[in-house]
């Protein structure tokens, strides 16, 4: 009798334990939602120095996070945070943000700088950052990656062969911070990018930032 009673307790205990641990691992949405405090809900940023993640190509997000994690891409907070995520977490978040509808920044841009930035863009940026910095999908298909793409993608995606980041519609302040980081060497860049970037004065960089910021992001 005593033995039977003991068995019942064990069974009930096991059930209770099963109920308390029965939870699925975090979903992509749960992982990505946590970023919203800084990057805005669904990755649509309302903060001028914080990039929007909504609609950013999956491959670009993955490379950025992994390079934050390794320290290869300099950062303030992102390196510390990226270390908390596995490759699978990063891929899940990347897929989540790639699915979100991009929304262009809604701050003011300087019309004179936009015009100046446009001229610079058409002269030196458009060969890699196609379509005014919007996403591109089909344009490179069928091209020989080594011949056609490596020069542009050397600073971020040579291994993946994937898209350049979506910079159309990003906050100008964020773009300026990143261009300054390329220029002063804290962020690495390809030879081709260096050639274009090193030709730009601080005001040129401000102008290019305003140009990209004035563009709408492509809705996929």
């Amino acid at each position: 009798m005593a033995k039977k009673w003991y068995g019942t307790i064990l069974a009930v205990g096991a059930l209770a334990l099963a109920a308390s641990v029965q939870a699925a691992p975090p979903s992509a949405a749960m992982l990505a939602n946590a970023c919203g405090g800084c990057h805005g809900a669904r990755g649509v940023s309302a903060g001028p120095s914080m990039p929007s993640l909504a609609g950013q190509p999956k491959a670009y997000f993955i490379v950025a996070m992994k390079r934050f994690r390794s320290g290869e891409r300099p950062s303030t907070v992102m390196g510390r945070l990226a270390k908390g995520y596995t490759d699978a977490d990063i891929e899940a978040m990347a897929a989540f943000f790639a699915r979100q509808k991009p929304v262009p920044q809604n701050g003011p841009v300087d019309a004179r700088l936009v015009e100046k930035g446009a001229a610079i863009y058409y002269k030196q940026c458009k060969y890699c950052h196609l379509d005014n910095g919007r996403l591109w999908r089909q344009i490179h298909q069928g091209q020989d990656y080594d011949k056609q793409c490596r020069n542009c993608h050397a600073d971020y995606g040579p291994d993946t062969g994937d898209e350049t980041p979506m910079i159309a519609g990003q906050w100008p302040k964020y773009l300026k911070i990143q261009m300054d980081a390329f220029k002063d060497g804290t962020r690495k860049m390809s030879k081709k990018k260096a050639k274009a970037m090193n030709a730009l004065s601080p005001e040129d960089r401000e102008a290019v930032a305003n140009f990209y910021a004035s563009q709408t992001a492509e809705v996929r």
């Binding site: 919203g36 405090g37 800084c38 990057h39 805005g40 809900a41 940023s45 309302a46 903060g47 001028p48 120095s49 914080m50 303030t76 907070v77 302040k173 911070i177």
Partner: peptide, 20 residues
């Protein structure tokens, strides 16, 4: 070494979290 940049990012933290 990151303090000036973090000041700029902090501003966006506030803006984004209150907007959310």
């Amino acid at each position: 070494s990151a303090a000036r940049l973090e000041h700029v990012y902090a501003e966006s933290w506030l803006k984004n979290i209150l907007t959310e």
